[in-house]
């Protein structure tokens, strides 16, 4: 009997200390999370223009541009609670030629232990159809989103990869052999069409703690080679210009696999 009482005492002691632990992370106190997107190609930092790469089809190519939208970020706690980053602060364009764009901080996050980071590659259909006054920051079609928007078929370009390859046909005007992947398509406003909005879920090996005075830094590796390699190995020779067309769905499917939550620091 005494033993049982002792065990209960020990157990309640543990429980008290657990609850006091969670108490330390008062949800009403807010912290931040820094996200860093580091673009790689085959395990090495992506180098624009000067580096030659080879895709799964054996086609040599360079990359001259690699930009994509990250939006609608959600964080999931250990206990399943989800923190949704407020819409207005949840749109970012990562541009490979602009290092500052590859790191950004999400603030206003309730303290706690988190396990998942979710986000869209692209822009949700709401923001694709919203009044122009709502399109500020990364969504400003006459500002940050210049080049990431189709004006003739109203909608954002979610991911843009361009480069040159001997496998691409010669453009008589520019004298270049270029390829262009401009992937977008939010599903259409009144009529159905392709939807290339993709949600990515990254799970941390160990939960990460967001605290008022401690901002975790999530280092996400982005393997640009996955745009062409994956479920569908894309041939530059046949699909050198993949924009708003049915084949783009394959490219979007491929690049859902390019993100990896590598480590925290």
């Amino acid at each position: 009997m005494k033993k049982i009482v002792f065990q209960i005492l020990v157990l309640s002691g543990i429980m008290i200390s657990i609850s006091s632990c969670t108490k330390e992370l008062d949800e009403n106190i807010l912290g931040s999370l820094e996200l860093e997107f580091e673009n790689l190609y085959d395990g090495q930092r992506l180098v624009l223009n000067s580096q030659t790469y080879k895709n799964a089809m054996g086609e040599e190519h360079t990359v001259s541009q690699f930009d994509y939208f990250i939006s609608n970020i959600k964080l999931t706690k250990e206990n399943g609670e989800v923190f949704i980053v407020p819409q207005k602060e949840s749109y970012f364009i990562v541009k490979h030629n602009d290092p500052a764009s590859q790191k950004f901080t999400i603030s206003g996050i309730p303290q706690g232990k988190y396990t998942n980071i979710k986000y869209l590659i692209g822009v949700d259909s709401m923001r694709n159809t919203m009044d122009v006054s709502e399109r500020t920051g990364a969504l400003d079609v006459g500002g940050a989103a210049q080049g990431m928007y189709w004006s003739w078929n109203s909608g954002y370009i979610f991911l843009k990869m361009e480069g040159t390859s001997p496998a691409a046909p010669l453009n008589q005007t520019t004298g270049q052999r270029g390829f262009r992947f401009h992937i977008g398509g939010f599903g259409g406003l009144n009529s159905k069409t392709i939807n290339n909005i993709k949600e990515i879920t990254l799970t941390a090996e160990d939960p990460f703690t967001v605290k008022e005075n401690k901002t975790p830094h999530a280092h996400i590796f982005v393997d640009a080679s996955k745009v062409m390699n994956g479920k569908t190995n894309v041939s530059i020779a046949t699909n050198h210009t993949t924009m708003f067309n049915p084949f783009s769905v394959n490219v979007a499917d491929n690049y859902t696999a390019m993100f990896k939550l590598d480590h925290f620091h």
């Binding site: 159809t129 009044d131 122009v132 079609v141 006459g142 500002g143 210049q146 080049g147 928007y149 004006s151 003739w152 078929n153 109203s154 406003l189 009144n190």
Partner: peptide, 24 residues
């Protein structure tokens, strides 16, 4: 292709065979 008049003008401005500029 465009569902909102307020988003229309970007297209002729940026079309290479019309005005060939960039909105920004």
């Amino acid at each position: 292709g465009v569902h909102d008049l307020d988003l229309f003008a970007i297209s002729p401005i940026e079309n290479p065979v019309e005005m060939d500029d960039k909105l920004s």
